[in-house]
Design a protein around this nucleic acid. Structure first.
Length: 197
DNA sequence: GTTTAGATCAACT
DNA sequence: GTTGATCTAAACG
């Protein structure tokens, strides 16, 4: 599972006229991962239980995040594409990401990456192997294992201690680690029904 | 029960 | 100012 995530580093993700080289990913281990949307099997997460090499897109803060279903079919494993470096279609990416000041920030962060590639909820379930607006291509050159770093995932509350984030050293497009404010807290559902004073 | 839309807020640039 | 596998609430089946 973690190997799949590492293998995605350096691959080219083509989306609606723009191409990025993946530089940062996070692995999500489906049924065994509380942070995964597939932790509970629902019709919505069914896509991740399906065949690999498909796209799972979900909405977050009004933006979108893109995942690659990696399989095997029953484990619902998926890899979140967190960041990438634009290698083609820079003009298109810039038009979509007007707020980005530097080219390195065009696809820095999952929401920005999907926006730069024009990936929306309509691309959900796209087969990345078929010729489609969104395609995943193998890495042009093998990535040196020494360049791959790992660490805890960004912004997750559940299972925040799992070092399932991988990124390429020497890449300015990789975002910095940010811990979730409430990560590790006890799940105290007991609402302290704080009546107004 | 699940899904979608909007709010929230700390860390980043 | 921007971003975001969070959080809550409302709509749906």
């Amino acid at each position: 599972m973690l190997t799949r995530a590492r293998e995605l580093l350096g691959c080219h993700l083509v989306g609606h006229g723009a191409t990025v080289m993946i530089t940062e990913v996070e692995a999500y281990d489906g049924v065994n991962d509380p942070a995964s949307h597939a932790f509970t099997r629902t019709p919505r997460s069914e896509i991740m239980y399906g065949p690999p090499m498909r796209l799972y897109v979900y909405r977050l803060h009004g933006h979108h995040c893109a995942n690659v279903v990696t399989g095997p079919t029953e484990s619902a494993s998926a890899v979140l594409i967190r960041a990438g470096r634009i290698v083609d279609g820079v003009d298109t990416a810039r038009e979509r990401r007007l707020s980005a000041r530097d080219d390195d920030a065009l696809a820095r962060g999952p929401g920005n990456l999907t926006q730069a590639l024009g990936i929306t909820i309509e691309d959900l379930g796209t087969d990345l192997r078929d010729p489609s607006p969104v395609t995943l291509r193998p890495a042009g050159a093998a990535i040196d294992a020494a360049r791959i770093l790992s660490g805890p995932r960004v912004g997750v509350r559940r299972a925040a201690e799992q070092p399932w984030r991988f990124w390429l050293a020497d890449e300015p497009s990789v975002s910095a680690y940010r811990r979730h404010p409430r990560a590790g807290e006890a799940n105290s559902s007991s609402s302290t029904s704080s009546s107004n004073s």
